[in-house]
Measured scan of single mutants.
Amino acid sequence: TTLTVNTQTYTFTSEEEAREFARRYGAKTIRKTNGTWEVHG
């Protein structure tokens, strides 16, 4: 199964959650914005 996250942004309140998600789905960018963490595919 392949998950494609081209134009979607996922927002997390903790860096740990964001990094775990990025690691699991191979997202390329993690960015902190206004106190939340954004993961970009």
Score class of each variant (00 low, 15 high):
40 H>T: 15
32 K>Y: 15
40 H>G: 07
7 T>I: 12
25 Y>E: 05
27 A>W: 15
12 F>G: 00
23 R>W: 06
21 F>W: 07
9 T>G: 06
35 G>M: 03
27 A>Y: 15
41 G>Y: 15
26 G>H: 07
14 S>P: 00
34 N>L: 03
25 Y>D: 02
30 I>Y: 06
35 G>L: 03
9 T>P: 08
24 R>V: 08
17 E>H: 04
10 Y>S: 03
39 V>I: 04
29 T>E: 12
34 N>H: 04
13 T>K: 08
34 N>M: 03
3 L>M: 12
19 R>S: 05
4 T>G: 12
22 A>E: 03
7 T>G: 05
4 T>Y: 08
27 A>F: 15
2 T>E: 13
15 E>K: 03
30 I>T: 06
23 R>Q: 10
30 I>D: 02
18 A>V: 00
15 E>G: 02
29 T>D: 09
21 F>M: 03
7 T>M: 10
33 T>E: 14
33 T>R: 09
4 T>W: 07
14 S>W: 02
37 W>A: 00
24 R>Y: 05
28 K>P: 06
19 R>L: 11
2 T>Q: 14
13 T>R: 08
10 Y>A: 05
38 E>D: 02
14 S>F: 03
8 Q>P: 10
41 G>I: 15
17 E>V: 04
14 S>K: 04
32 K>F: 15
22 A>R: 01
5 V>E: 13
37 W>I: 01
22 A>I: 03
35 G>Q: 04
21 F>A: 04
23 R>I: 08
41 G>L: 15
20 E>I: 06
17 E>G: 03
5 V>H: 15
35 G>H: 04
30 I>F: 05
33 T>Y: 08
29 T>H: 11
30 I>G: 01
11 T>Y: 14
14 S>E: 05
3 L>T: 15
39 V>H: 01
23 R>L: 09
2 T>V: 09
6 N>W: 11
34 N>C: 11
34 N>I: 02
1 T>W: 06
1 T>K: 05
28 K>A: 11
5 V>C: 12
28 K>I: 14
17 E>T: 04
37 W>R: 00
29 T>W: 12
6 N>I: 14
17 E>K: 05
27 A>G: 15
25 Y>L: 10
3 L>I: 12
7 T>D: 08
28 K>L: 12
28 K>N: 10
41 G>E: 06
8 Q>G: 10
30 I>M: 04
16 E>P: 04
13 T>N: 12
38 E>W: 04
23 R>M: 08
5 V>D: 13
13 T>L: 13
31 R>L: 13
4 T>V: 12
23 R>N: 09
22 A>K: 01
17 E>F: 02
22 A>H: 01
19 R>F: 07
24 R>K: 14
30 I>P: 03
8 Q>L: 11
28 K>Q: 13
12 F>V: 01
29 T>M: 14
35 G>S: 04
2 T>N: 14
14 S>Y: 03
10 Y>H: 10
3 L>F: 06
8 Q>Y: 13
39 V>M: 01
17 E>A: 09
19 R>N: 09
30 I>N: 03
16 E>T: 08
36 T>L: 15
18 A>L: 01
37 W>M: 01
4 T>S: 10
14 S>N: 11
16 E>S: 09
38 E>N: 02
33 T>C: 13
33 T>G: 10
16 E>N: 07
1 T>Y: 06
1 T>D: 13
6 N>L: 15
19 R>G: 03
37 W>L: 01
36 T>R: 10
10 Y>Q: 04
22 A>S: 03
36 T>F: 13
33 T>A: 15
15 E>H: 04
40 H>W: 12
40 H>K: 11
30 I>A: 02
4 T>N: 14
29 T>L: 15
12 F>I: 00
39 V>K: 00
1 T>P: 13
15 E>S: 02
24 R>A: 07
23 R>P: 00
25 Y>C: 10
4 T>H: 12
31 R>K: 13
24 R>H: 07
35 G>K: 03
30 I>W: 03
27 A>I: 12
29 T>C: 14
22 A>Y: 03
28 K>V: 15
11 T>A: 06
4 T>D: 15
5 V>A: 12
24 R>W: 06
6 N>F: 10
20 E>Q: 06
37 W>F: 04
18 A>D: 00
9 T>N: 07
41 G>W: 15
9 T>M: 10
16 E>D: 09
7 T>Q: 11
21 F>C: 05
7 T>S: 10
1 T>H: 12
20 E>L: 05
24 R>M: 09
5 V>I: 09
20 E>M: 05
6 N>R: 02
11 T>D: 02
20 E>T: 05
3 L>P: 14
21 F>H: 05
36 T>K: 11
26 G>W: 03
41 G>K: 11
39 V>Q: 00
37 W>K: 00
5 V>N: 13
11 T>W: 08
11 T>Q: 08
19 R>Y: 09
9 T>Q: 05
15 E>R: 04
11 T>F: 13
8 Q>K: 10
15 E>Q: 04
21 F>T: 01
29 T>I: 15
39 V>D: 00
11 T>K: 08
26 G>F: 03
8 Q>H: 12
6 N>D: 12
19 R>D: 06
27 A>P: 02
38 E>G: 02
32 K>T: 09
25 Y>W: 08
17 E>M: 06
33 T>D: 14
21 F>S: 01
39 V>T: 02
39 V>R: 00
40 H>E: 13
15 E>W: 10
39 V>L: 02
21 F>Q: 01
36 T>N: 07
10 Y>E: 02
10 Y>G: 02
13 T>H: 11
31 R>A: 08
6 N>G: 09
4 T>Q: 11
3 L>H: 15
41 G>A: 14
22 A>W: 02
26 G>M: 03
29 T>A: 15
38 E>P: 01
41 G>T: 15
26 G>Q: 04
35 G>E: 05
4 T>M: 07
38 E>I: 12
18 A>S: 00
11 T>E: 05
24 R>G: 03
39 V>A: 02
15 E>N: 01
6 N>H: 12
30 I>L: 05
8 Q>V: 13
36 T>G: 14
40 H>L: 14
37 W>Y: 04
36 T>Y: 13
40 H>D: 11
14 S>C: 07
8 Q>I: 12
26 G>L: 03
3 L>S: 14
41 G>H: 13
1 T>R: 01
4 T>K: 09
9 T>W: 15
27 A>R: 05
15 E>F: 13
22 A>F: 03
37 W>T: 01
1 T>G: 14
37 W>C: 03
28 K>E: 13
22 A>Q: 02
26 G>S: 05
16 E>R: 08
14 S>R: 04
27 A>L: 15
35 G>F: 02
22 A>L: 03
38 E>K: 02
22 A>P: 00
23 R>T: 07
9 T>C: 13
13 T>Y: 14
16 E>G: 05
17 E>Y: 02
28 K>C: 15
17 E>I: 03
34 N>P: 02
21 F>I: 02
5 V>Y: 08
27 A>D: 04
7 T>W: 11
5 V>W: 09
29 T>P: 10
1 T>F: 08
38 E>F: 05
34 N>V: 03
29 T>Y: 14
25 Y>G: 02
32 K>S: 06
28 K>D: 11
36 T>C: 10
39 V>E: 00
40 H>V: 15
32 K>R: 07
32 K>C: 11
9 T>D: 03
10 Y>P: 04
2 T>D: 12
18 A>N: 00
2 T>R: 06
39 V>F: 01
40 H>A: 09
34 N>T: 02
39 V>G: 01
7 T>L: 12
1 T>A: 11
34 N>F: 02
17 E>D: 08
8 Q>D: 08
14 S>L: 04
24 R>I: 11
38 E>L: 07
15 E>L: 10
14 S>I: 04
8 Q>N: 11
21 F>R: 01
12 F>H: 00
3 L>V: 11
37 W>G: 00
38 E>H: 05
26 G>N: 08
10 Y>T: 05
2 T>W: 08
6 N>Q: 12
10 Y>W: 14
37 W>N: 00
17 E>R: 04
11 T>S: 09
40 H>I: 15
20 E>Y: 04
23 R>Y: 06
14 S>D: 08
35 G>V: 02
26 G>A: 04
20 E>R: 06
10 Y>K: 07
34 N>D: 14
7 T>K: 07
16 E>L: 08
1 T>L: 10
32 K>A: 09
31 R>D: 04
18 A>Q: 00
33 T>K: 12
7 T>N: 09
29 T>V: 15
13 T>F: 12
38 E>Y: 06
5 V>P: 15
24 R>D: 04
9 T>R: 09
32 K>L: 14
29 T>R: 04
14 S>M: 03
